[in-house]
Design a protein around this nucleic acid. Structure first.
Lengths: 332, 332
DNA sequence: CAACCTCGTGTAAGCGCTTACAGAAAAGGA
DNA sequence: TCCTTTTCTGTAAGCGCTTACACGAGGTTG
């Protein structure tokens, strides 16, 4: 990464413009000249400097992504879908994890200065930074967040799936419910799930907060909940990790799942399938979220589209053992 | 991201050199001048272009990382440790996932052109590309791979831990073993684990390959293995995901774990703790691997060190239920 | 008060590339 | 043969920044 276009030009006996044209295929080059150039490139093992190219082109050929953390497969899967498509489109991906970070503002702004577009999860970036980015016209796609003017938003369906889940549980005959992992931010995925289940179960469901959406916090909160005098018959959790924590708590207290208490999750992470009892949960198309985000960003960057899109992907209810046997269904 | 240093200079009534000096704190600037400059910067909302800075400085202020995929927490955790430290050191992180990719060579070379240093997992990059990178002096750190001349290598201990695990299982009184997830590449982590267990169990253990180190492939291979006439008494798996597959297979065949067949994993991923029975496994310091890699890379990039380092971190045997009750230990 | 520092600032030369523009050479047409 | 096209190639002006170097203006010092 040391040899420059000048050395190639000199060796080939041409100007740097000709070298550039040969390599990029822009403009005409006599085949004899082309050969000379390619030979010199080969001999010197020349690779154009990304920095030089980007500066001259005025674009980074890179996308950024801002997520809280990578614990659990949700962000991971979205990230992979995103990276794969970005890569196909000739862009690199720069990552930024915000959990436990101070100076998130600066980090996001720095990242924005290195890319042509940004995927941002939920509310991981400060609102004023976002406003600023929208203002300067930085292409932005948000995932897992309520629609926002001036930028694309993309999410998996929550409310209707939550209703479906709640109705399914209600048909089991359960009467008292808890929603473990109460929403922390208005308008995010968890909030929509909560709104969905509550619209079906009404006063029969109570919101129980956890500190974070993690196994440990789910575990602690579930312990408190299940020890309390009148414990719910079913616990709908904000996501699978919290649900795994609830499973642990139940086991610890000697409660049988689903016979004493039913538990459901959300996301269908790998551990959900391997937990005992296996978790009833809602699967969302994580990979596809990432892939779509990359495509949307590409449209915005290349100015193929200028008006924001807001898209919602569908989800799937995955019924396993943890919600109990459905009275109207055949056992399997 | 539109305003340049020229506009700031003009507005402040100074030269661009002074603006640069003010912002970077290099060289002396009269406090009155500084104020004028900062005021102009503020008013114009100026942020220096990364491209311009990088080109002039001759460095990217970015690190790369090459991994196969992000399924399971191993790569994920290493990645997070890496990103956190890189970020502290003022570097961004560019990612490249190789699983399922064609043109990995080109992708790696492109990535290398965008960063000051690279973390590469195992054998995810073609050998000749690696040789080339070493040759041009690109700072490189390898994780989960045998030591390589000319670059840092970093890994968690395998052989001794594998011996420990094997000895532990032998003390259970088991006599016939299988190693599920036979090594595919000489010198990688899995190979070392295999060497370790075999050095203890000798002919009593048989290597059984899986296609990939995934739950599904582990599942399929375990089904074949457990259906065969003389099935092993204990299955040592290359990693937790394969072990989860084995657990599924056993359940499917009506075999009790650990009473009919014992199973162990490696990594201690989240699902290992939540599986039933919970998996006996080996925990490795994934986060720390990433953090150390970032620091090592920093040393190499800043030329604080020039001779390669080869480091091995220690691991921990985590005994849970899936290996069976140890005859000489108290039940817990 | 002359000689010498220091401090503060500007000038200009890069860093490695792309590309508009212009000129030269080759090719075609009358 | 001379003029018009077409094809190819070079020149040079950026892209946005850093920094070595030079220079002028006050401050010190003996």
């Amino acid at each position: 990464m040391d040899v420059t276009i000048y050395e190639v030009a000199q060796r080939a006996g041409v100007s740097i413009a000709t070298v550039s044209r040969t390599l990029r295929g822009t403009g005409p080059v006599a085949s004899k000249t082309r050969e000379k150039v390619l030979k010199a490139v080969e001999e010197l093992n020349f690779t154009p400097s990304r920095l030089g190219v980007s500066l001259a082109e005025g674009r980074h050929a890179a996308n950024g992504i801002v997520f809280p953390n990578l614990s659990g497969p949700y962000y991971t899967e979205v990230l992979l879908g995103y990276e794969e498509v970005a890569s196909e489109l000739g862009r690199s991906v720069l990552i930024l994890s915000t959990t436990g970070r101070t100076r998130v503002r600066d980090l996001v702004k720095d990242l924005a200065g290195r890319v042509d577009g940004l995927l941002i999860f939920g509310h991981t970036a400060p609102d004023d930074v976002i406003a600023e980015l929208i203002q300067v016209g930085m292409p932005l796609v948000f995932v897992s967040r309520e629609p926002l003017a001036g930028a694309d938003t993309l999410r998996a369906e929550n409310t209707a799936s939550a209703r479906l889940l709640a109705e399914h549980l209600a048909l089991h005959g359960y009467e008292r419910f808890a929603f473990l992992g109460a929403p922390l931010v208005t308008g995010d995925d968890v909030d929509e799930r909560w709104q969905g289940v509550r619209s079906v179960l009404g006063a029969a469901i109570e919101a129980v907060p956890t500190g974070h959406y993690t196994v440990d916090d789910g575990h602690q909160a579930a312990l408190r909940l299940l020890r309390s005098g009148d414990r719910p018959r079913a616990i709908i959790c904000s996501d699978d990790e919290v649900a795994l924590g609830a499973l642990l708590a139940a086991e610890e207290l000697g409660l049988a799942v689903p016979d004493d208490v039913a538990v459901t999750g959300w996301d269908d992470i790998m551990a959900a399938r391997h937990a005992r009892p296996a978790l009833t949960t809602i699967r969302q198309p994580m990979r596809e979220l990432g892939a779509r985000a990359a495509r949307a960003l590409d449209e915005l960057i290349t100015a193929a589209r200028s008006t924001p899109n807001h898209l919602t992907l569908t989800t799937e209810l995955v019924i396993r053992a943890s919600c109990g046997h459905h009275p109207q269904e055949e056992p399997r």
